[in-house]
Design a protein around this nucleic acid. Structure first.
Lengths: 223, 223
DNA sequence: ATCGACATACCGTCTGGTCGGTTTGCACGA
DNA sequence: TCGTGCAAACCGACCAGACGGTATGTCGAT
């Protein structure tokens, strides 16, 4: 059931509204922002690429900034929903922390590859957002990290993850991989998305696992 | 000796020319580009912050783009020089691959923290460079990665690093940490730079080491 | 007749870059 | 020591154009 629910959260299903213009403009903006950057893309270019007029665009969006924020909003909502979904499913099944974390990490990588253009924009253009919007993005990302951190801390308490590195560093270590994807990953490359997600997740997990030596007396829960 | 040579490559020693104006303008540009972004910073702002006039600036720099490229140039030269230095020193001493790699990684992290502003600009503004300049940056970074990859491949051949993940993925896994630093690291944070460099390097190395099981018959070289 | 969905023409602002001119630093001959 | 010449350093007013955004109008559906 939860698996089906997760599948229902596929990228394409997150609404870009039903209006055609809204849709088209946002798609064109995402594409242009990702390839040319926000500042170097004019509203004229966007509406031309979308096949609409400036009047139409400004009927649906308050400003160019609004257009940019819509891209962030969509991405943040989607990723947060998937994370919540996976954590809830893991809790329901009583999965071991490491299994939940592995599922989460692989999902984040996979989703980030599907949202490669959004990822490019996210990294490059965050500082172009209006200050209040920037704060909103930070707030949302913070909320996301908190959920992720809770997972890590549970693992640390259970003794399966190392406790000699601050959780903040562990988080940065993982999300660096995710945020770096748009800068090197090419769909034309040799690996499949799933393989890459597995590999990156494995590298991360291997790095953060507690040393097998000096196991605590607390009962280890086998898978 | 090589240690002294490395120390001689400190950040501050890389020339920003001796002319005061050149110096001042570049510093102001770096600062503003890092905080506001390239496109949203006007030449007027830069020269005002540097305390010079536009005429003076255009006497030393051909264009705004030139200003941006100078920042990249400086950073790339410095990092490449340090990498070469460390690899050469390791070869001279006959160090084990893992020790050389550890030294390199820690140095990259440390240097990247010293060049935090440059790192911010690097990630955000690469697409604003003139196409030829963009290609030049890519070329330089490629050269850097090739040296790094040689190190990894030597380790893989010797059996100390895992061979079930492509080197390209291993490289991305490490440099993601480096490139992500400007987005989360704060000098006001709890860890010292050296600690953080050690931690990130350790996480990386732990991830890429070959499994201790199934050791190859080739003689393992103990440290 | 009212309203949402657009189209079109237009505006004020700001930008990167230029250019003619002036000042400064300095070698050199008398 | 002083003038002289000359190039490099520097000034700042100016420009052409592009940009985000708006005001006003049209049109079909209800």
């Amino acid at each position: 059931m939860s698996r089906a629910a997760l599948a229902a959260l596929a990228v394409k299903d997150v609404p870009m509204r039903t209006t055609n213009v809204h849709d088209q403009v946002l798609r064109a903006a995402l594409d242009l922002f990702a390839t040319q950057g926000y500042a170097t893309t004019s509203v004229q270019e966007i509406v031309a690429a979308a096949g609409v007029t400036k009047g139409a665009m400004y009927h649906y969006f308050a400003s160019k900034d609004d257009l940019l924020f819509a891209i962030y909003e969509r991405m943040l909502s989607l990723q947060k929903a998937r994370l919540d979904q996976l954590v809830a499913a893991g809790a329901e099944r009583g999965d071991a922390v490491e299994d939940v974390l592995r599922a989460v990490c692989e999902d984040v990588v996979t989703t980030s590859i599907e949202l490669l253009a959004e990822g490019t924009v996210y990294t490059r253009s965050q500082h172009m957002l209006a200050p209040e919007r920037q704060a909103e993005v930070k707030r949302r990302r913070r909320a996301y990290h908190d959920d992720f951190q809770a997972l890590l801390e549970r693992g640390i308490e259970e003794g399966v993850f190392r406790d000699d590195v601050p959780p903040a560093v562990l988080i940065a270590h993982f999300f660096s991989d995710v945020h770096y994807l748009p800068q090197w990953y090419s769909p034309a490359g040799p690996e499949t998305t799933a393989e890459l997600a597995e590999q990156l997740t494995e590298l991360f997990l291997r790095g953060i696992r507690a040393e097998p030596s000096a196991t605590k007396p607390s009962g280890g829960k086998a898978k």
